[in-house]
């Protein structure tokens, strides 16, 4: 356990030190790259709650990532064109304020996760994987064929949304916001892990029958975990859209779901900082391998394959040992 704690501290220290160095060395690109890693890590932290703690293999988390992204996109689009979202039954205006956008992203993606979860959790195993995948595709094709918000082309938001008291266009200040949210999500997940709910959830993953026999319904635990998980990934989607100042149906694509899952597994399923390390390594590989070869996905695929076949427990498992994994 101590080795994992040390490793966790080192990962977080890296996430603080690298952008600080880049800021002082005037390397805004490095800051943007780290911001990307932090946001994708946040999406992974969301998925890890369902996947690692709950054992729910969701291949449709792009749906929540995309919903978060479009929550930002739609609100900011209406704010920048000065058109209201709806006029009847009451007036809803767009907004450029990050806290409001975050709240909307959290609520809409949590609602979507609640509905998708309630339907999908009727199934289990491989059916669950495929039905979540299909729900993700459903949103993907809907956004492509719905012309109101850019359709297949997506839409650009010209100015990054604002946060009271900060200049979000300054890369380091935007990074600070993302890092605080990531740290907050990690704190929340670590609290959940040690709460009665988290323990019951872990127990339901290992033996649903025993959990049922002490009077807890595994499905309610799973649904709550899936909803929270979707909400966190949705928040990451809103930040990701703000980072790029662009949203498109790609956020909903099943490759996005696959990549979020890759972060989690690369780092270590069920480990608190697994997705954070996974996202950091993924972004680093994407950046460096892309410079080495145009066909860098081959190397990425080979590394992933090697990880699955020979290094179970992910990078954190590799470094900190397997004994802390509880299954």
């Amino acid at each position: 356990m101590r080795r994992e704690t040390l490793l966790n501290a080192a990962i977080l220290a890296g996430f603080l030190a690298l952008p600080l160095w880049a800021w002082m060395a005037d390397e805004p690109f490095i800051i943007t790259l780290t911001t990307r890693a932090a946001i994708l890590a946040l999406a992974g932290v969301g998925l890890n709650l369902a996947l690692g703690l709950g054992g729910l293999v969701s291949l449709g988390h792009a749906a929540f990532f995309g919903i978060g992204g479009y929550a930002m996109g739609v609100l900011a689009f209406h704010a920048q064109t000065y058109t209201p979202l709806t006029e009847a039954p009451f007036l809803i205006e767009g907004t450029k304020s990050m806290p409001v956008i975050w709240l909307v992203a959290l609520i809409t993606s949590a609602l979507a996760a609640l509905v998708i979860g309630a339907l999908s959790l009727r199934t289990s195993g491989v059916y669950f994987i495929m039905i979540t995948l299909a729900f993700g595709q459903m949103f993907y094709f809907f956004m492509i064929s719905w012309p109101a918000y850019g359709g297949e082309d997506g839409m650009s938001i010209y100015l990054r949304n604002g946060f009271p008291g900060l200049n979000t266009l300054d890369p380091i200040q935007f990074y600070a916001l993302c890092f605080v949210l990531l740290a907050g999500a990690l704190w929340l997940v670590s609290r959940i892990q040690h709460s009665a709910f988290g323990l019951a959830l872990a127990a339901a993953r290992q033996s649903p029958m025993r959990v049922t026999s002490v009077g807890i319904r595994p499905r309610s635990l799973h649904l709550l975990a899936f909803t929270l998980s979707g909400a966190i990934t949705g928040l990451a989607g809103a930040l990701f859209a703000d980072l790029n100042r662009f949203v498109s149906p790609t956020m909903f694509s099943w490759q996005t779901s696959g990549e979020i899952m890759v972060f989690v597994i690369l780092g270590g399923v069920g480990r608190l900082l697994g997705p954070v390390l996974g996202a950091a390594i993924f972004i680093a590989m994407e950046h460096w391998l892309d410079g080495v070869s145009d066909y860098w996905h081959i190397y990425l695929g080979a590394i992933l394959l090697g990880m699955v076949l020979f290094a179970r427990g992910g990078l954190i498992g590799l470094i900190a040992g397997r004994e802390v994994a509880h299954d």
């Binding site: 293999v57 899952m261 597994i265 860098w296 695929g301 992933l304 990880m307 699955v308």
Partner: peptide, 20 residues
């Protein structure tokens, strides 16, 4: 299934880029 999903996802990357 999780390992299977990830390993075959990796195979997709290898096949797609190999074909490209």
């Amino acid at each position: 299934h999780l390992d299977q999903v990830l390993a075959t996802f990796a195979l997709i990357l290898i096949f797609s880029e190999g074909t490209r």
